[in-house]
């Protein structure tokens, strides 16, 4: 499988945080979700991919070095950043006028169609938009030059479930237009990823905990619940992390079938991405 992004041994050191030799790929035709708690390293990873910060290691986008071919590569990338945009003091029309000067493949007609489709007024200043409208405008601006790769940093944070769902639909449609396209989406709203992502990359304290297909994760991972007596009988190698609750123990396991056959008397539930993330971060071993 060819990759749109290849990240190899990327490190970045700040005073109080370090991204430690992370490596993962974003293959063509897939949506990769980058998860982790706030400050885990998701945004630092995205900034490294976009070459906004200095970092150690190698990043290739469309097979090309992201520092050496920065300008060429970025012509085919669409970016949505949670906290940053072109200007709050332009209207949607003005945003389009500026964007078309940055991208060779900018399609003004397509952009205006998106504005109409998302019910965005073209003559209202961005600062007067609601959070949902602003995010939709950012997405319209990011996809109107038909990029091969979409990089999204927290695109659904602070939005209500209806708007979030609408935005996920936009991403689905974007992917359907061309099978070679990819999306790298960082978020801490993990339920969004259960609906849309093909792979999940989980970062914690600057390290990659796992990088695996979403289906495998949801099909195999589980939460085993038992009392103290049963917990003591369970082999440490058979679970990833555990957490002691008020009345029971919760164990994160990565093979429900195997665990069930070995410990038949223990209840096992399916694990959501949020459960997996929480137990990985808060659990003990």
């Amino acid at each position: 499988m060819e990759n749109n992004i290849e990240i190899k041994n990327v490190s970045k050191k700040y005073d109080k945080f370090e991204l430690k030799n992370i490596s993962f790929n974003v293959p063509k035709g897939v949506i990769v979700g980058l998860i982790g708690e706030n400050g885990a390293g998701k945004t630092t990873t995205i900034k490294s991919i976009l070459n906004i910060i200095n970092f150690k290691g190698d990043i290739k986008i469309f097979g090309k070095d992201n520092k050496k071919y920065e300008k060429i590569i970025k012509q085919d990338i669409g970016v949505v950043l949670d906290d940053s945009f072109l200007s709050d003091y332009l209207d949607a029309k003005g945003i389009g006028k500026v964007m078309q000067s940055f991208y060779k493949n900018w399609n003004e007609k397509k952009y205006l169609e998106y504005l109409q489709k998302f019910n965005l007024p073209s003559n209202k200043m961005v600062k007067d938009f609601s959070s949902g409208m602003k995010m939709k405008l950012k997405i319209a601006a990011a996809i109107s030059h038909s990029p091969k790769l979409l990089i999204l940093d927290e695109p659904t944070s602070g939005l209500d479930p209806v708007v979030r769902n609408e935005i996920l639909d936009i991403f689905r449609e974007y992917m359907l237009e061309d099978e070679e396209r990819s999306i790298l989406m960082s978020t801490h709203i993990t339920t969004d990823l259960e609906h849309i992502s093909d792979y999940i990359v989980f970062i914690n304290k600057g390290n990659i905990v796992f990088d695996m297909p979403t289906m495998d994760l949801l099909d195999n991972y589980g939460i085993a619940k038992c009392d103290e007596k049963n917990f003591e009988k369970i082999n440490k190698d058979d679970y990833i992390k555990y957490r002691k609750e008020k009345y029971q123990y919760e164990l994160l396991i990565n093979n429900r079938g195997k665990f069930k056959s070995k410990y038949g008397n223990v209840n096992i539930d399916k694990a959501s991405i949020e459960d997996i993330m929480l137990l990985n971060i808060k659990g003990e071993k």
């Binding site: 976009l50 070459n51 920065e70 970025k74 950043l81 945009f85 072109l86 991208y103």
Partner: peptide, 14 residues
């Protein structure tokens, strides 16, 4: 105000 510099650097600008 718009934190535009980060966004502009994410686009094809040096």
């Amino acid at each position: 105000i718009s934190k535009a510099e980060k966004y502009l650097l994410a686009m094809p600008n040096t």
